[in-house]
Nucleic acid binder design. Sequence first.
DNA 1: ATGAAAGCGCTAACAG
DNA 2: CTGTTAGCGCTTTCAT
Lengths: 364, 364
Amino acid sequence: MTAHRPTIYDVAERAGTSYATVSRYLNGRAGVAPKTAERIEQAIRDIDYSPSSTARSLAQQRTQLIALIIHVSSTDAAYDPNTMEIIASANARATREGWQLVTLLSENDTSRANIERLVSGGFADGYLLYTLQDDDPLLPLFARRSIHAVISGTGYLHPMPCPAVDADNTGSMRELVRYVLTGETGGGAHGTSDTAAGGSRRLRRTRPAYISGPVNMPGAPERLTAFNEIVSELLPDEHDIPVYYSPDWRQTSAAAAVRAWHEDGVLTTRDAVICANDTLAVGAIEELHRLGYEVPGDVAVSGFDNSSAATSITPQLTTVDQHMERRGWVMAGMVIDAIRGASDAAKPGETVLIATDLVVRASA
Amino acid sequence: MTAHRPTIYDVAERAGTSYATVSRYLNGRAGVAPKTAERIEQAIRDIDYSPSSTARSLAQQRTQLIALIIHVSSTDAAYDPNTMEIIASANARATREGWQLVTLLSENDTSRANIERLVSGGFADGYLLYTLQDDDPLLPLFARRSIHAVISGTGYLHPMPCPAVDADNTGSMRELVRYVLTGETGGGAHGTSDTAAGGSRRLRRTRPAYISGPVNMPGAPERLTAFNEIVSELLPDEHDIPVYYSPDWRQTSAAAAVRAWHEDGVLTTRDAVICANDTLAVGAIEELHRLGYEVPGDVAVSGFDNSSAATSITPQLTTVDQHMERRGWVMAGMVIDAIRGASDAAKPGETVLIATDLVVRASA
DNA sequence: ATGAAAGCGCTAACAG
DNA sequence: CTGTTAGCGCTTTCAT
């Protein structure tokens, strides 16, 4: 459009030196006389030069870019604040380590195809993939070209072809349920069998029930499995633990579950309703209130995620903070390690679990 | 890292032709014999070739990239769902027009500097800047290098050095206030003087009050100015219109405003509290309820933004939908027009206003 | 229809 | 300390 962007040649000519020297100066390499450096500096200012990132990338064979690919069907979690947390924290880490993060959104087939093309074309030095589907078409691509990539969002029950990051759904659900039932907090996540054993302990609640989100959503199966395990450890004699499989994360679904249990006459002060996320917990509490129960006076309810909903309801939710704001940070760190060829870089199949926090509030 | 990515030469060699021909084939140019094309296709599959985006960008002198730069202090609107709307809609438009959108987050001085370097280095063909500060350091850079860019977020009261996009705060505030006071809906935004004139008309409410957000936030001054204008048109004899300048967008601030007015004894059924956004409106309504008022029975309250808060409160808010989901779409379209050199591309100083919708619900 | 050759703007040995 | 010379992988005339 405009009259020829100035190049390194223009600088060299104006500074009366060779362009190799200018390149050395630009890259801070040794071997540029102070006087020459000064002339180069001046020339750069004069013609308002700045190096072409494309040319530099081609010559160095690296772009200094990390691409974060967000692959969510727009109806889904695109507007989930978690997504923004990942972007922001990955950006912070990349910046700190000297890389530039660029975020790509995969919304439809066309953009997916474009992104695949970029990836194949070596657009970035490394990739972070946030996807909810474990059969994402980028995964085989990463593997085939042995591209540096880290994935998150598919859960950790199935091994992925590249290193993964996830919240410690298992540990946190165990800790949460243990707290709700026993009132005990802290202690290791996966309790050893002796501390876990027995119904001899005095329990605050002896009738846990679970409202699960869609089981094909990330974390859902992990949470449910962990729930079942810890319950059978704490209540080895209890066998008819109610589990409601909600087809979605809507409040009305949780309400339906609660209503069904109420009609079966199962809700007593021994009951605790463990919900797979905060939204479901809110729905459960509101329905319990409608039915005349008190929370936690009659029934205890817990959430998961520590979303904004957790504090805007009364009683405020006892829940789990997944620390999504660490997710991107960790992912970016891992891919950079891989690019740098760090010996301790995570390997395909490995999943780094991010520690969670039990947030004890009023509801359980 | 791995044994040499295959290049166009490798394809040419395997297909028994020259790399120029392969290039032609790849770019869909005429002049490749069907049989040759077939051999090339086969060779590409055989060695799993895909062209280097960097090399291609260098040779073509364009990257086919549009960069969306989000410049928000992390405490601010980074987690605003609006931001995600812009990203998603800009992405959709870019994809549709054959470009790839990449989003860059400017969180601190380091990332800001990195981004400036990329921009100077011709990283993308065009830029979308979403910033809240009208002295963003990228603006002079865009101007100096006559780079294709479109800005949004700084309001439209001050001319910007590049084309801008914003919601039609003026028109929508006028329409909103007109509706709240008169019950009339529809009609043009900027009413002509004859339809606007006079207090002869029967008004539902004759005592509007305004709760403004921080005046340095985008849209805030536009909304306030429009409020003052339409009110003086509808109520030419009224001069002491209460305006509360909230230092933030918090519900408690709106509550404070309402409480102050209540103590002054000004709240009657003639009153309408116009709030600069939905959050403030929610705060106002909750405080009014606390003070024993009914909404809209006693006092009418309106919001702005049509956020999720608008429907989660009782009564649901009468508010304005800014259609943020069109913002990115329009911005991307504009920058692409500019890149293509379209004759009708927007010029620096111009602001494209996005039409808004009055959303009539229960609160006013 | 195809090949040869000259860039795109920069980095990186290698001499001197 | 500095200049020369090859590339990086691809596009694009210009001949043939």
